[in-house]
Design a protein around this nucleic acid. Structure first.
Length: 555
RNA sequence: GGCAGGGUAGCUCAGCUGGUCAGAGCGCACGACUCAUAAUCGUGAGGUCGGGAGUUCAAGUCUCCCCCCUGCUACCA
C-alpha cells in the first residue's frame, strides 16, 4: 500500500529573492503535499535547486559588472535561507553548477544524439559586429513597431506588452555596443520534438486526472504540431556541449534545468550513501512524480521534458503537473521580479511567523485562477480565522482543562449524541482532507481542517462547559474530553500546512516526539493523560504597523 | 491575431459529468454567551452567476457570438 513519491519543484533563478507568487505557486504547495505524503507513510523525495544559467542571470551579472557565478553566490544562500525559515522541507536543494549536474546533462544530451533525437540545424540570428557576439532577443533594443516606444526589447515591448521578434524592431541596436545588429547564420542542435508528437499526444490523452488548464494547454501544443527546438545557444555561460568543435556554444538553460530533476535525485542518492538509490524514483514505474510549477512553465514540463524522457528511455514520465496560476500583488499588479515589484518572502518572514505566512498563502493559493496578495488581508485572516477559529479554540480548551480538571483528560462514560457527532466529524475529516491533499487541492484541505475547528467551537457553545462545570461536572468533563480530541485531530490534519504551530500544540497537549512521525491518524487521548500549559499558537497582529518592502531592489 | 484559463453577493473565492447550485468565508446589522488571544455561537442582508442568442421538460453548469482580465505564442522562462 505504501507508495513512492518524487516531488519535483521548479528551479528558481538565483538572481533575485523569492517573492510570494513563486512560493504560493510552487514551493509551498510542493512542501505541503510532500509533508502529507510523508505523514501517511509514503516514501517521499523532494528535490529542486537554484537555476544558475540562463539569460536572467547573465543580464544581472552584466548590469552589475560581475560574473554570473557571483550572482549565484549572492542569491543561492538567500534562497536556502527562505526554505529554512519558511519550513520548506527539501530533501535536497542543490544548484545547476555541480559536476554531477553537468555530467548528467551531457549524458542525456549524448544519449539523445545517439538515438537520433538531436540534429544540427542552421538558424539566422542577430549578431553584434562590434562586440563580436550573437545577441539573444532581449539583448536587442529598438523602437516598437506597434506603439513606437523607443526602449522596446527584442523579445517584448514593455510599453504595449506585445510579443516581438527582434527583427521587427525599428532601428535595432545592441545592448552591448549600441551597434546595429546584423543577421548571421549560426548552427545549433535541435531537439526533434516532432518525433514524439504521436507518443506525447497518446500519453497526454490518458492524463485525465490533470488539471483542466494544464491538460488542455498541452493538448493544444500537440494539435498545433510540435516543431524542432534549438537546445543550444551562442553564449559562454552554461553547460558545455559534449561534442568537438562546439566549444564556443552552450546548452540552452531550459534543456539543462529540467534535467536537474534527474541530476538532483542522483546527487541525493550519492549523498545518502547509496548511489543507485535514484533508480527507485526514476526507473520503477510504480513511483509517482509530481511537478510543482507556475502556469508559465507548463509546456516545458508536459511536452519538452516528457519528450526528452521518452527519447532517453526507461525513465518515468510525470504523473501529475499541478501547475498553479499567479498571485497578484494589490491593484492587480503582477509579482514580477523584472519589474521590481513584489513582496519578498524573506521580508515577510522578518515580520510574520512562518505558519502565519504559510496559512495565508495556502488560503489564497492560486489553484484555479489568479489570486491576490494583500498584507491587510493576511493580518485579518490571521486574527479572524487562524486565531479566532483555530488558535483560540485550542487555547480555551486546554486552559479550561487546566483550570477545572488539573490538566488531566477526564474519564468519560457513554457519550451524548452531539459528542459522538463531533468525534465522527473529526474522523471523517481525515478522509476528506486526505483526499484533498492527495489531489493537490490544498485550499480545500485547509478548509476541511478548519471546518472541524468550527464544529468544535459550535459544540462548545452548545454544551457550555464553563457553566456546566459548576452544576454537572460529568457533563463538563465529557465536553472537554471530546473537544480536546477534536483539537488533536485538527492538529494532525493541518500539520502539513502549519508544521511549526501544530508541533507546538502537540507538545502543549503533553505528547512527546515529532508530530511528523506520529502518522496520519485520529488519535484519542486517554483519560488521565495530562496536557501541558497552553501557549498561544499565534500572535494577534495590529493592522499594518510594519511596512513591508514591496518594491525596489532586494537587499 | 491564434491557443488556454478565468469573469458567481461590498471583498476573496467554492460550485466535478445540466435538474435543493444560487453557496462559503470575511465585511456589515441585530441577538446570545463570557471558558478563551474583546476570541466564540446564532440570525439577517436579496448577487439578472460578464453581455446576447440558442439547445433542453430543465443551464453559472452544454452550443454560438461579443466584451474584459491573465498566461502562452516555441531565442523570457
Amino acid at each position: 500500500m505504501q507508495e513512492r513519491i518524487l516531488v519535483c519543484v521548479a528551479w528558481p533563478y538565483a538572481n533575485y529573492l523569492l517573492h510570494v507568487g513563486q512560493v504560493a505557486g510552487a514551493y509551498l504547495p510542493a512542501d505541503i503535499f510532500a509533508r502529507y505524503q510523508r505523514l501517511i507513510g509514503n516514501e517521499v523525495l523532494m528535490v529542486s535547486g537554484s537555476d544558475c544559467h540562463g539569460t536572467p542571470i547573465t543580464v544581472t551579472a552584466e548590469r552589475e559588472g560581475i560574473q554570473p557565478r557571483d550572482v549565484v553566490d549572492r542569491y543561492h544562500p538567500k534562497i536556502l535561507e527562505t526554505w529554512e525559515r519558511l519550513g520548506i522541507s527539501f530533501d535536497l536543494f542543490t544548484t545547476t553548477l555541480t559536476e554531477n549536474h553537468y555530467a548528467t546533462v551531457q549524458e542525456v544530451f549524448l544519449r539523445l544524439l545517439e538515438r537520433g533525437f538531436l540534429e544540427v540545424g542552421t538558424q539566422d540570428q542577430l549578431y553584434d559586429p562590434e562586440a563580436q557576439r550573437f545577441l539573444p532577443d532581449r539583448y536587442v533594443e529598438g523602437t516598437c513597431p506597434h506603439c513606437a516606444y523607443k526602449e522596446a526589447r527584442g523579445d517584448q515591448c514593455d510599453s504595449c506588452g506585445k510579443t516581438l521578434d527582434a527583427t521587427d524592431l525599428i532601428d535595432p541596436r545592441s545592448r552591448f555596443s549600441g551597434a546595429r545588429p546584423v543577421t548571421r547564420a549560426s548552427q545549433h542542435y535541435l531537439l526533434r520534438l516532432p518525433k514524439f508528437q504521436e507518443a506525447l499526444g497518446a500519453w497526454l490523452t490518458k492524463q485525465t486526472h490533470w488539471r483542466k488548464n494544464v491538460l488542455n494547454f498541452s493538448l493544444g501544443w500537440i494539435a498545433e504540431g510540435l516543431q524542432d527546438r534549438a537546445i543550444t545557444r551562442d553564449i559562454s555561460w552554461g553547460v558545455p556541449i559534449p561534442v568537438d568543435e562546439w566549444e564556443t556554444k552552450r546548452i540552452y538553460v531550459w534543456f539543462d534545468a529540467v534535467i536537474g530533476y534527474l541530476s538532483a535525485t542522483r546527487e541525493w542518492a550519492q549523498r545518502s550513501g547509496d548511489p543507485e538509490a535514484w533508480r527507485r524514483y526514476w526507473e520503477d514505474p510504480a513511483t509517482k512524480s509530481y511537478y510543482f510549477i507556475g502556469k508559465d512553465n507548463i509546456p516545458f514540463h508536459t511536452i519538452i521534458w516528457p519528450g526528452m524522457l521518452m527519447g532517453y528511455g526507461g525513465l518515468n514520465l510525470p504523473f501529475d503537473v499541478p501547475a498553479n496560476q499567479y498571485v497578484n500583488f494589490s491593484a492587480g499588479q503582477k509579482q514580477s521580479k523584472s519589474k521590481g515589484t513584489g513582496t519578498w518572502v524573506l521580508n515577510l518572514l522578518d515580520t510574520y511567523a512562518p505558519d502565519v505566512v504559510r496559512f495565508y498563502l495556502t488560503a489564497i493559493m492560486p489553484e484555479s485562477s489568479d489570486s491576490e496578495f494583500r498584507e491587510d488581508e493576511l493580518i485579518r485572516q490571521n486574527n479572524d480565522v487562524l486565531i479566532g477559529t483555530w488558535g483560540n479554540l485550542a487555547n480555551r480548551v486546554i486552559t479550561m482543562l487546566n483550570r477545572n480538571f488539573d490538566g488531566a483528560i477526564p474519564e468519560t462514560g457513554e457519550l451524548a449524541p452531539e459528542s459522538e457527532a463531533l468525534l465522527a466529524a473529526a474522523r471523517a475529516a481525515f478522509e476528506k482532507a486526505g483526499a484533498e491533499y492527495g489531489a493537490v487541492h490544498l485550499r480545500a484541505a485547509l478548509n476541511e481542517g478548519l471546518a472541524v475547528a468550527q464544529a468544535a467551537n459550535r459544540y462548545l457553545g452548545e454544551r457550555e462547559p464553563w457553566k456546566a462545570v459548576k452544576v454537572d461536572r460529568a457533563h463538563a468533563a465529557e465536553t472537554l474530553a471530546t473537544a480536546v480530541n477534536a483539537i488533536n485531530a485538527v492538529k494532525t490534519i493541518l500539520h502539513p500546512i502549519l508544521p511549526f504551530s501544530t508541533q507546538q500544540l502537540h507538545e502543549d497537549l503533553g505528547l512527546a516526539g515529532l508530530l511528523a512521525d506520529n502518522g496520519w491518524r485520529f488519535e484519542t487521548l486517554a483519560g488521565g493523560h495530562r496536557v501541558g500549559v497552553a501557549r498561544p499558537l499565534y500572535a494577534k497582529l495590529d493592522a499594518l504597523t510594519v511596512e513591508v518592502e514591496v518594491a525596489g531592489s532586494p537587499a
